[in-house]
Design a protein around this nucleic acid. Structure first.
Lengths: 108, 108
DNA sequence: CTGGATCCTGACTGATACTG
DNA sequence: CAGTATCAGTCAGGATCCAG
């Protein structure tokens, strides 16, 4: 939706398209929590401090729409939903790890 | 200012501290524009499409406060201000380039 | 040229209540 | 368990005008 507006801008705007996908306040934390593998909704909610349900849902939907995570629903009682990184999402692992290292070295 | 609130959170929150520094909508575009070297304020404004003056000022101040860019003022008429990446900021180059490549490959 | 000041909108947030 | 709905508050981002 937001993408549409900046879609046809020039190459230098690529970074902004990327940020519209993974620049959300919680996106990277979620991706980070998914690196080890599949997680259930409640696991993510527990693993990511201070996130609330609504934001987690929102980011997960956004990232699913952008093909970064895949969502699998199991028709059990109680319901189970699992989130996994797609190949596209996994490619972000080295980048986010580098960013994380940069933060540890230079932040504070 | 925002940092204060999340300062004492645990390690998993490191990503959020980083995002509070370079997660702004325009931060990465500005850093990207500074990779080749020093730029004047008006150069940045011209190089970064769709940014407005206030946001550029704001982000530059934020990044200066976080030690990512350095600001040099020349007392000329008309005034000249040059912005340069610090060492800390230059360390982001490979990361942002990787992110950029990821975007070119996977966005759209 | 390089910003500061102001006003305004939309995104994010927190708390709570509710559903399949 | 995995969300949706609503109200209300804060804050980042955008537009415009003004100043040294």
């Amino acid at each position: 939706m937001i993408d549409k507006k900046i879609k046809k801008s020039n190459e230098r705007c690529a970074l902004q398209e990327i940020l519209s996908i993974i620049g959300g306040k919680w996106s990277m934390s979620i991706i980070y929590a998914l690196f080890p593998g599949t997680r259930r909704f409640s696991e993510l909610e527990r693993l990511i401090p201070n996130i609330n349900t609504r934001m987690l849902v929102k980011e997960l939907k956004n990232m699913e729409a952008n093909g970064i995570v895949s969502r699998k629903v199991f028709a059990t009682v109680p319901p189970t939903v699992e989130y996994t990184l797609t190949t596209k999402g996994e490619k972000l692992e080295p980048i986010i790890n580098e960013l994380h290292k940069w933060g540890l070295e230079y932040v504070n």
